[in-house]
Design a protein around this nucleic acid. Structure first.
Length: 379
RNA sequence: GGUGGGGUGGCCGAGUGGCUAAUGGCAGCAGACUGUAAAUCUGCCGGGUUCACGCCCUACGUAGGUUCGAAUCCUACCCCCACCA
């Protein structure tokens, strides 16, 4: 394959929904797609071969966490994140910007960057836009994300503006440093992130500011699903949809739940990532076409049925609900793994089917039915 | 046979006169989780009734007793454990 790196081709649309193909140095990603999260260079609990068989085309790693352990210099010495982890398909690294939000209380923000008190050993770690680029370059994922300032969903206009404007200024610094590191090579793309909290005017300004600094090979939307009500997230996406560039992939960061994927796709989003699939999997919640089940539930004690009869994953085609429940009750790690695997496959399959439906023109009615069925019942 | 220790809610185990339907833990049941400080966290957990507050019933080996009031003090009995014989 000698396709232009980072080229994105839209192959079909259905309303705002798009089916596309993204060319990356380590392979092609067909969208819409869900990207499993492997913060520390591993999708929690799963073997890379399992993640691959689940149909994952691209996975994430995290700048902040990999910087703390093992350190980007170790990863670089081991041949980069791909060789280190043996994952040979595309990868994306998040910048540590989300930790500005999630580790609030362990961090201090200045214009220069963010000082974190390491949750590992308490040592002080200063992350700047430049440093985030250097770390991600050393890690060597196909896509690096800008270092951004994420504010909570309840953030006031003033606070959201501050985070948004700072993110724009940091973007310029990210771009400059990334350009120096890349030196004209096409090994790694840098993607910007739209911020602005729940305020439509700020979101627009953020996007405009980003596009002025472009061109970009992809644009992300960040700072959603961070405490704001779901209709608010939809409204923000609705506001952005008409002004987002059509020729590059749109990546909704950190979202989601199954319904979020369909709602996002319907609003023109192409890529998603979320820890919920694996975290809920470890905590015993499995997503089904008909809703969700708590795998520990006493109701499954003697159920010989598959976890999700409609699923083709290794968990559902192999084990009974009764056995999965048993594994959770006795705290065998196999249980956590199997439900994580199912949830990941569930979201990936949802992306696959959305893609088929967009291409054959049945996306919208299918989406409506799917959501009604999924949200109408909790088993 | 003797001496000492002990019997508490499904289990383990605090509690030695009122603040005790009784600390904790486990088990059980239910819920939360969205760019991973999470194999984590939260709630319920004697029975009945109530949306809830509450009210009623039953309960700390058994049976009596002391006391305004007992899981807590006294008596007898039953059972368990340790050591001695």
């Amino acid at each position: 394959m000698t396709a232009t790196p980072f080229a994105f081709r839209v192959e079909g649309t259905s309303g705002l929904a798009r089916a596309g193909t993204l060319e990356l140095p380590h392979g092609t990603v067909r969208t819409p797609a869900f990207m499993p999260v492997g913060t520390h260079g591993a999708v929690r609990g799963l073997h890379p071969a399992e993640v691959r068989r689940a149909g994952a085309q691209i996975i994430l790693g995290n700048t902040y966490h990999l910087h703390l352990r093992p350190g980007e210099e170790v990863v670089a010495q081991m041949g980069g994140l791909h060789r280190f982890t043996t994952w040979d398909r595309p990868m994306l690294t998040d910048s540590g910007g989300f930790q500005v939000f999630s580790l609030e209380g362990l961090r201090k923000i200045t214009e220069d960057g963010v000082t974190f008190t390491s949750h590992v050993d308490g040592s002080l770690r200063h992350l700047t836009p430049e440093k985030a680029m250097e770390i991600q370059w050393a890690l060597g994922a196909d896509i690096a994300m800008q270092f951004d300032h994420v504010v909570p969903g309840q953030a006031s206009w003033e606070l959201a503006e501050e985070g948004m404007e700072r993110s724009l200024r940091w973007l310029a610094r990210c771009r400059a440093r990334h350009g120096e590191l890349a030196g004209g090579t096409a090994r790694q793309a840098l993607w910007p992130i739209v911020q602005g909290g729940t305020h439509d005017d700020l979101r627009r300004r953020s996007l405009e500011g980003i596009l002025r600094q472009g061109p970009w090979t992809g644009v992300a939307i960040g700072g959603l699903s961070v405490g704001e009500p779901k209709p608010v997230m939809h409204r923000v996406l609705d506001g952005l949809a008409p002004v987002m560039p059509a020729e590059v992939p749109r990546y909704l960061m950190g979202v989601g739940f199954p319904s979020d994927l369909l709602e996002g796709i319907a609003r023109g989003v192409d890529l998603f990532d979320c820890v919920a699939a694996t975290r809920n999997g470890r905590h015993g919640t499995a997503w089904l076409a008909t809703g969700r089940v708590n795998v520990r539930s006493a109701a499954l004690r003697t159920s010989d049925a598959p976890l999700d009869p409609e699923c083709d994953c290794e968990t559902c085609t192999t084990f009974s609900r009764s056995y999965l429940r048993h594994l959770f009750v006795v705290e065998e790690i196999l249980g956590l793994r199997l439900v994580s695997l199912h949830n990941i496959r569930f979201l990936i399959r949802l992306g696959e089917e959305a893609r088929r439906r967009i291409l054959d023109g049945t996306f919208d009615p299918w989406r409506r039915e799917w959501l009604a069925r999924h949200e109408g019942s909790t088993e």
